[in-house]
């Protein structure tokens, strides 16, 4: 056990001795208030678990989209009309030129 472990164990052992004298029973009226609200709440949708990831998912998707455009920028920036103009595929196949 190194010096830090010894110090930390000593401190936490002392902290544990303090205990917690506070009452753990529900305060008067708490259960009634919560139960009254609970029965009026709609049940969580099965998709609720995904909602917390939705914004992060959207940001990741947007970042992927931008990255895809950046990587393929040359394809988007080239003018397709030039390709067609300079390539005579039929002529090449038939060897007309």
């Amino acid at each position: 056990m190194n010096q830090f472990d010894h110090q930390w164990q000593k401190l936490t052992a002392l902290a544990r001795q303090a205990g917690d004298p506070r009452d753990v029973a529900a305060p008067y009226g708490f259960a009634t208030r919560v139960a009254a609200r609970a029965v009026t709440l709609p049940p969580a949708s099965p998709w609720a678990a995904f909602e917390r990831f939705a914004l992060r998912g959207l940001l990741v998707a947007a970042a992927c989209g931008v990255a895809a455009i950046a990587v393929n920028y040359t394809i988007f920036s080239s003018e397709p009309a030039d390709d067609y103009a300079t390539t005579d595929t039929v002529g090449e196949i038939l060897n007309l030129s």
Binding site: A26, F30, A31, A35
Partner: peptide
């Protein structure tokens, strides 16, 4: 089955666990 009394009993029962 949306029984409010049962909901109250459940809260009272679990409160010590949750509050700790």
């Amino acid at each position: 089955r949306r029984d409010q009394v049962a909901a109250r009993e459940l809260v009272d029962h679990l409160y010590p666990l949750v509050i700790r």
